[in-house]
Structure formats: C-alpha cells, structure tokens
C-alpha cells in the first residue's frame, strides 16, 4: 500500500513562547490574504502576520514571537480554545513553518486540533493549574525548558513532572510512528467497497 512516512514525534524538549490570549482564531494565525497559495511552503513567514508585523512589514518588538528570548523555541503556550474559527490547514502549516512542534493550552478548537496532529504539531491540553505554572516559570526565567513526552503523555517543567495529557490513542500511534492516516484508510478499501455495494 502507498504510505507516506512523516517525521515521528516522540519527545520534545525546548524553551517556550507564551501567547496568553484565549480564543486565538485561525484568521490571526494566518490571515486570509495568505490563503491564495497552492502549496504549503513559506507560510511560516506569515504566521500571526497582523500581530507580528506592522502594516509596513516591520516586526512588532512587543509581540512574544519577536522577542530575542523566543529564538529557537519550538513550543507555544497559548490560551483556551486555541485555533477556533476557520478550518484552514494553513494554520498548522504556518506554525510548523515557523518552527513550532507543540502547542500547550487549556483547550483547543476541534478542527484545528485534527489539522495540527496531521502535520506533526502536537496539541497538548493541560489543566488551568499546570497552565498557570508554565506562565509563572516563563516569567521567572525566559530560558525555562519544557519536555513533552508523547509516548508517556506527560509534560515536564524544569525536570519536574508538571502534568499528564490526554490524546486520542490512534492519533498518538500515527504521530509516534510517523504514519499518516491516508495509508490506513487506503488499507480499508475492501470495507469501503462492501459499504458502497450495500448502499448502492
């Protein structure tokens, strides 16, 4: 069967950036005027364009992703209901294009969560207490580092356990082994044939 291998996700240790606002919608993650592309490349340059860049294209120095201490961070700590709004998969493409591999937030919008996992971007939902501790740790030390362990489903902050997180077991399997879902679906062709025959 035709399978496409993806970069596997097991553990990730990184500094993190904080974008505390709740309900960050996908129009902010990647504004619609950048959706006229017909491929996935280069979208990282436009991530959070209207917050990150001024109207003339100069970087806004106050935006968290632009601060010098954000350099190299591969984890974003965000507010609740992250990724609400449009179903555009350009949102995870842009976040991954910027260099992010995991988002830690109290909750995620459904379609965004699905889209993220299909692109090796791990959505990690943690409770309010753990979320608050992350924000606190980042304030105390901008180089604070977090480890997301997908096989163990845990988040560690500065070497100490912070929280566990839930993930759909199938999505986890796909991420850990770098397997894509289309291969799985294509392997179900006989079932689909039977369904279609029955419902024709």
């Amino acid at each position: 069967m035709k399978r496409e291998a993806r970069e596997a996700f097991t553990t990730l240790t990184s500094t993190f950036v904080v974008l505390p606002a709740d309900n960050v919608d996908t129009d902010q993650i990647i504004p619609a005027r950048f959706l006229k592309v017909t491929d996935k490349v280069g979208l990282g340059a436009n991530v959070f364009a209207d917050w990150r860049l001024g109207p003339d294209g100069t970087p806004n120095p106050d935006f968290p992703l632009n601060r010098p201490d954000a350099a190299g961070a591969r984890i974003l700590v965000a507010g609740a209901n992250f990724g609400c709004g449009s179903s555009r998969e350009h949102a995870p493409w842009a976040l991954v294009g910027w260099g992010l591999r995991a988002i830690i937030a109290p909750s995620f919008a459904d379609i965004f969560k699905q889209n993220a996992m299909k692109n090796g971007l791990l959505p990690v939902a943690v409770d309010a207490a753990a979320h608050a501790r992350l924000l606190e740790a980042r304030r105390a030390d901008p180089r604070a580092s977090v480890t997301v362990d997908l096989p163990a489903q845990t988040v560690t902050l500065g070497g100490k356990p912070l929280a566990g997180f839930a993930i759909d077991p199938f999505a986890k399997e796909c991420l850990v082994h770098g397997v894509d879902e289309l291969g799985y679906l294509l392997d179900r062709a006989a079932d689909i044939d039977r369904y279609e025959a029955k419902h024709a």
């Binding site: 179903s87 555009r88 998969e89 379609i111 699905q114 889209n115 299909k118 692109n119 759909d168 199938f170 879902e181 289309l182 799985y184 679906l185 294509l186 179900r188 062709a189 689909i192 279609e196």
Partner: peptide, 20 residues
C-alpha cells in the same frame, strides 16, 4: 462538517474519513 486539507485528500482518495 468542515475538514482540513489533509482530510480533503482522504475523502478524495477514499470517500471516507477517520472520525471520532
């Protein structure tokens, strides 16, 4: 319901989706 572009590809190829 709305789906992402990866899922658009899944449906084009298999007429099916993996859904919880």
């Amino acid at each position: 319901f709305g789906i992402g572009t990866s899922e658009v590809e899944h449906v084009l190829a298999t007429q099916c989706l993996l859904q919880g």
